[in-house]
Design a binder for these strands. Structure first.
Length: 981
RNA sequence: GGGCGAUUAGCUCAGUGGUAGAGCACUGCCUUCACACGGCAGGGGUCGCAAGUUCGAACCUUGCAUCGCCCA
């Protein structure tokens, strides 16, 4: 006997383990079946499951379970990404909390060891959380963007290196010195996408820059209304800035070429306070006459716009900040003329000091308070500085072209379609992608810096050495598989003595000639160098690998093929690339979707996925983004614990309408938990009534109308759910299932069959038990993708031992029926439902006591209706609480009548009710019919409508009038019979 | 400033040209032999505003208003 309720806490873990143990999540391997694959958007290895993940993975799991049941060979590729900054941050914080030595104190190798150790131990907790949700990923193929440390030659590592090297060879990756978004906290460059532009309360400081050489000009003076009333003589020019400290690096002041106020000043100079630098006033369109004073200071080394202006004016940028956003010291400071008391100051202290100095000089004209857009690091939350550095860039503009074309040509389709626009918009305006990061946790950039500024971008260090030696025309041998290079001792001495300063000075100390080339001398040099035991150190001076690592998204961009074994030619790649669908949120279109498109097309020659389904964001119930600072974060695992994974999943599914955000509330989850209970109790009812698991049903042999009807309804539900899932209308699929299970199966079918199950007709009873059991089992299949746990549990519990014989529900075939709906049965059951509903409504409205049984007469109903009434007498009496059902020629005395279909139905309740209320009720309905009939008649009286509207619509309206008029007449008669009471 | 989207019942949302819908909440009745995490019945909307197209507009067009998101 089933308990009264499903216990998710007990069942979910048990069922999940059983599925996993039996390998249910792996591809079937059936090569004759259609392949279907999805790659998981890899969560951060540091991540914890949030609502976005819960939605994202629920939808993927629905698709994957659905397609698996449809017999496809399904791979849901699992994995996590290494999340460079985030992970490094986590481990650094741990070190600090434990009072251990810092990352820099412990050194790179030790730190990276530490991160790996952390990853092995506690990284990827999110995998366990995804399992709680029921995600049926193939965990045996769990991938990681950094590969497997125990296997240094793993394909994930090789893939990244190969892509970098090949793009470099094609000129699609290059090194460049330009302004980057610099994160002073992590001391790394970050990409545009990792910068959050936030509106904050800020200031514009209006600074007066003294004009050099005694120059003055007439500046217009305005009154309160903005009218120019005269001019004043100024020996300064005013510039407004939100970052006063950058004035230390100014190289000029720009005004608009058409700005008459300053026309005479172009070509003159200002003398910068503090640094005492003389910089020119230039004309440039960038200056906006409407904004501030119309004159703008130019700091090319610390502002993206100023950089361009400076370039046009031929200014050399002056760097005034170091990597930690302190004012520079040393040579840079000398070049910029920075006074000693500014050197080494934090940028915000420097700002304060600059402002104070201007104030003291009486050169601070005004402080304006206003909202300004300020860039913040999305991980560090510190203000980002534009900073000039050498970085590696991907030529995204070139790579974007085929990626744009692929969508235009329909090779990849966005669902909903309008996300295409976002994609195009981004792709059309794409900027060079800065892929290097000054971090330690990540894929080391496969580039080696050699002598005289040479750079070798190679798959291995051996290849880099080979390239160098080849360039220098020195002999060597290289192992074809390991790529390791063997260099003769004398040749190594030749190279080291020329390119390693340390080797050179060692030789000089030993009074040997570093520039020797005679074989005997080289042997001697070699002996000296080797005996020092510092060969490795010397070699590293000659060829030094780039210290930097790649942006995490660089490796994520390869995800759809790297996870399948690329660059090796694997069966998985052959079978499962390109993937069917990518499911993700819109905020990742730029970061990830676009980049996968580029890389997939470049290296696989084919788009990585056919469909991209963009789902909603999950917001709180007020429509606010969930965030820790707002304190409105809902934890999916808490909801799973409280209501079960099925409830959360079904809530997500029901709310996942295309193009809509999801406002999640606890209440919604609760109501879907109740839905699971409802289903559970339907099964409990079946169990009590010995409705077993017949397996198959021959529709043609089913005789009872109610059974024929419910099979037709099941068929319709299946058709709708199937189509909806195929079209990514998850909410429609879930809605159809909800409606069928609750409003058809439970509300009506199970009620209607009670008399049959308790009756004496054994044939009908057996048929009903079979159909009921069958429909329930089929329902479990249909609901399984959304609610895997409760359905799987019922599958087993409804027929003991079934799993051993037939396997898990999750591996059953998706239903597809071939049932011709029986219109006669449908009409009949609909009539029963209508009659019951009408009687209930009347009883309620007129206040007939719930318990009292009343007589019902069918007035002049005709043989068909009488027949129906007879057939369903038991159920009618039971649900409508009728004493008996009789056929009569007229409305009996003391009866209140109404109309069901075309039949007048009379209830013998006049003695129990308020007759006035009964009249009132009828008047109300007759009044409504009057109104409806009149407006429809008016419509039909309209010449234009009749001639122009489609004939079937006109006909529909005519039929409506006939129906309504007939009904109205009968209601009027009923009303009349109440007159006499 | 550019782009995208939203505006329908108290709340959350379906509904893309032909009689305005669901869930939740609310009201009343019911501890009826699957389920009170339940059953039955009911109240509640001039579909943001205005103009236009059309025989007919929640739906198409234009404008406006308000809100949200993305990008600069």
């Amino acid at each position: 006997m089933l308990d009264q309720r499903f216990d998710p806490a007990e069942a979910e873990t048990r069922l999940y383990k059983a599925w996993e143990a039996r390998g249910c999540f792996k591809p079937s391997g059936d090569t004759s079946a259609q392949a279907y694959s999805i790659v998981i958007p890899p969560p951060n290895v540091t991540g914890v499951l949030h609502m976005g993940h819960a939605l994202n993975n629920t939808l993927q799991d629905v698709l994957v379970r659905f397609e698996r049941m449809r017999g496809k060979n399904v791979l849901w590729q699992a994995g996590t990404d290494h999340a460079g900054i985030a992970t490094q941050m986590v481990v650094e914080r741990q070190l600090a909390e434990a009072g251990n030595e810092s990352r820099r104190e412990m050194g790179r190798d030790a730190f990276v060891d530490r991160v790996w150790a952390w990853k092995e131990e506690s990284g990827g907790a999110i995998v366990g959380q995804l399992k709680r949700l029921g995600a049926s990923c193939d965990w045996s193929r769990l991938a990681f963007t950094m590969g497997d440390r125990a296997e240094p030659d793993n394909n994930m590592m090789r893939a990244v290196t190969k892509v970098f090297v090949e793009l470099y060879k094609k000129g699609l990756i290059y090194r460049d010195k330009r302004l980057v978004n610099w994160d002073p906290h992590f001391q790394t460059a970050i990409s545009d996408l990792e910068v959050d532009q936030r509106e904050v309360n800020g200031h514009y400081w209006h600074l007066r820059y003294p004009l050099a050489d005694g120059v003055t000009y007439e500046h217009p003076v305005k009154d309160e209304d903005g009218n120019v009333t005269g001019t004043e003589t100024r020996n300064y020019i005013v510039v407004a800035t939100s970052r006063p400290e950058t004035m230390l690096g100014d190289t000029g002041v720009a005004v608009h070429p058409d700005d008459e106020r300053y026309a005479g000043l172009v070509g003159k100079f200002v003398e910068l306070p503090i640094v005492g630098r003389r910089v020119p006033i230039i004309a440039d369109d960038y200056a906006n006459p409407e904004k501030g004073s119309g004159a703008v200071k130019i700091t090319p080394a610390h502002d993206f716009n100023d950089f361009e202006v400076g370039k046009r004016a031929g200014h050399t940028p002056l760097n005034i900040l170091n990597a930690t956003a302190h004012i520079v010291d040393g040579a840079d400071a000398d070049a910029a003329g920075i006074p000693a008391d500014y050197r080494g100051l934090d940028r915000f202290d420097a700002r304060k000091k600059v402002v104070e100095t201007f104030e003291a000089l009486e050169m601070l004209q005004e402080i304006e308070n206003l909202k300004i857009e300020q860039p913040f690091g999305d991980r560090s939350n510190v203000v980002i500085e534009p900073w000039m550095t050498d970085q590696w860039y991907v030529d995204a503009k070139t790579m974007a072209q085929p990626a744009i074309a692929a969508v235009k040509e329909g090779k990849t389709r966005f669902v909903p379609e309008n996300w295409e626009k976002t994609y195009y918009n981004w792709m059309d305006n794409i900027q060079p992608w800065c892929v290097s990061r000054q971090l330690w946790w990540g894929h080391r950039i496969p580039a080696w810096f050699g002598p005289n500024g040479s750079i070798f971008v190679c798959n291995t260090e051996g290849d880099a050495w080979a390239s160098l030696l080849r360039e220098e025309e020195r002999p060597f041998t290289q192992d074809p598989s390991s790529r390791e290079v063997t260099i003769p001792h004398s040749e190594l001495a030749w190279v080291l003595s020329r390119f390693s300063p340390s080797a050179r000075s060692l030789l000089e100390e030993n009074e040997s000639d570093p520039d020797a080339s005679d074989p005997t001398d080289l042997m001697l040099n070699s002996a000296i160098l080797r005996s020092s035991g510092r060969i490795e150190e010397f070699r590293k001076e000659v060829l030094k690998q780039d210290e930097d690592v790649l942006d995490t998204w660089f490796s994520s961009a390869l995800w759809p093929f790297s996870t399948m074994g690329w660059p090796d030619k694997t069966p998985e790649l052959e079978t499962f690339y390109p993937t069917a669908t990518l499911i993700t949120a819109f905020d990742i279109i730029f970061f990830w979707v676009a980049r996968m498109m580029m890389m997939g097309i470049e290296f696989m020659g084919e788009v990585p996925f056919k469909d991209v389904y963009i789902h909603a964001l999950v917001l709180d119930e007020k429509g606010q983004k969930m965030s820790k600072s707002k304190g409105n974060v809902m934890d999916p695992l808490e909801l799973v614990n409280e209501y079960g994974a099925d409830a959360l999943r079904f809530t997500m599914g029901r709310m996942a309408g295309q193009g809509r955000n999801i406002r999640l509330s606890k209440q919604a989850v609760e109501s879907n938990r109740n839905f699971a209970t409802k289903l559970w109790n339907a099964a409990r009812f079946a169990e009590m009534n010995e409705c077993g698991a017949p397996g198959e049903i021959d529709f043609a042999k089913v005789t009872s109308p109610v059974n024929r009807w419910v099979l037709g309804e099941l068929d319709a539900c299946e058709a709708e759910a199937t189509k909806a899932i195929e079209e990514y209308r998850f909410n429609d699929a879930a809605g159809a299932l909800y409606k069928f299970i609750w409003n058809v199966l439970c509300d009506w079918y199970l009620e209607l069959i009670k008399p049959l199950l308790m009756g004496m007709d054994d044939t009908a009873k057996q048929e009903t038990r079979d159909v009921c059991g069958y429909v329930l089992d089929e329902t479990l299949k249909l609901l399984h993708p959304f609610m895997p746990f409760v359905t799987e549990e019922l599958w087993e519990r409804r027929a003991a031992g079934r799993v051993d014989e037939q396997g898990f529900l999750m591996l059953q075939s998706w239903p597809q029926y071939d049932i011709a709906r029986d219109a006669g049965a449908d009409d009949e059951i609909q009539w029963v439902i209508d009659l019951i509903t009408e009687v209930r409504s009347l009883r309620n409205d007129l206040g007939v006591p719930a318990g009292s049984k009343i007589p019902l007469s069918l007035v002049n109903a005709g043989p068909v209706i009488e027949d129906r009434a007879y057939r369903h007498e038991d159920i009618l009496k039971r649900i409508a609480r009728l004493e008996d059902i009789v056929v009569s020629e007229a409305v009996p005395d003391g009866a209140v009548s109404t109309v069901v279909g075309e039949t007048v139905v009379a209830l013998g309740i006049a003695d129990q009710i308020d007759v006035a209320e009964a009249r009132n009720r009828l008047d109300k309905e007759i009044g409504q019919l009057d109104k409806d009939i009149m407006s429809t008649e008016k419509k039909l009286g309209n010449e234009a409508f009749v001639s122009k509207a489609p004939p079937e619509i006109v006909e529909e309206n005519r039929e409506r009038i006939v129906d309504w008029t007939g009904r109205r007449e009968k209601l009027k008669a009923a009303r009349k019979s109440l007159e006499d009471l």
